[in-house]
């Protein structure tokens, strides 16, 4: 049976190096299958993260041959030609806990900083609204919100973004995409505070629209357009004096 050569970065926050492994090359195997096989058969101490294995939970992202990807839905033959090795690293731009497992806390902290939680307009303090909100699915704001709502929080866009690498304070594509879905949610009452939170150098105004996030989002979302939407809203709000 042919073998697949795999190089896996092993180490922690203090540093590390690549270790080489070989597994049987199978007709159908995902990158996560390969990592699991190595962990079960050869390297029990290998640290990595996964949960659902079907592209829903966003846990298993890693850097595969130089690109951040969701490994459970990435077939080896799509990223490595026959005979080519796999090189796996932890996601860039995030602190490494150990081996392929990164600390996602800074990533999700930025969702909170971008005011990524729904603030009901009609029901302050968590009260239950008296009636259901009527939101026509075909309305423009709802379509804008729907376009970005399927984010699974895998961090691939964040790891692929040059601006995150240049400015550690930058909120990043996922948090800004989340903010844009809420700006377009007609039931939400925190538009102004949210737009303030995503404005400036740490927010949408640092984005150069190079669109690596959109290119690499495994769910096919378009954070780049969401960020452009935030810029547009802030531009007109400021110009028309809606921001004081």
């Amino acid at each position: 049976m042919e073998t697949l050569k795999v190089r896996i970065w092993r180490g922690d926050a203090a540093g590390g190096a690549f270790s080489a492994y070989e597994v049987p090359a199978r007709e159908n195997q995902t990158v996560l299958d390969v990592v699991s096989e190595i962990q079960r058969e050869q390297e029990p101490a290998l640290a990595y993260r996964f949960a659902c294995r079907v592209g829903m939970c966003g846990s298993c992202a890693m850097e595969v041959n130089g690109r951040a990807r969701w490994t459970c839905r990435t077939h080896v033959k799509r990223v490595a030609k026959p005979g080519e090795a796999l090189t796996l690293r932890p996601l860039p731009h995030l602190p490494v806990i150990r081996d392929l497992a990164t600390d996602m806390a800074p990533f999700f902290d930025k969702w909170a900083r971008a005011k990524g939680s729904f603030q009901p307009k009609d029901a302050p303090d968590g009260a239950v609204p008296e009636d259901f909100a009527v939101v026509p699915p075909g309305s423009k704001p709802r379509r804008e919100a729907d376009a970005g709502i399927e984010c699974i929080g895998c961090g691939v866009c964040y790891a692929s973004c040059d601006v995150v690498g240049w400015n550690p304070d930058y909120l990043g594509p996922a948090a800004l995409n989340r903010a844009w879905t809420l700006v377009n949610d007609v039931r939400d009452g925190a538009r102004r505070a949210r737009l303030d939170a995503v404005s400036g150098d740490a927010g949408c105004h640092s984005c150069h629209s190079t669109q690596s996030c959109t290119e690499r989002c495994p769910k096919g979302l378009d954070p780049s357009s969401a960020i452009a939407g935030l810029k547009r809203s802030l531009f007109w709000d400021a110009l028309l004096g809606r921001r004081g």
Partner: peptide, 13 residues
Amino acid sequence: MRGQLHLWIAQRV
């Protein structure tokens, strides 16, 4: 942050 927004607007205009 407001100053940064205004710098961005100035550059676009």
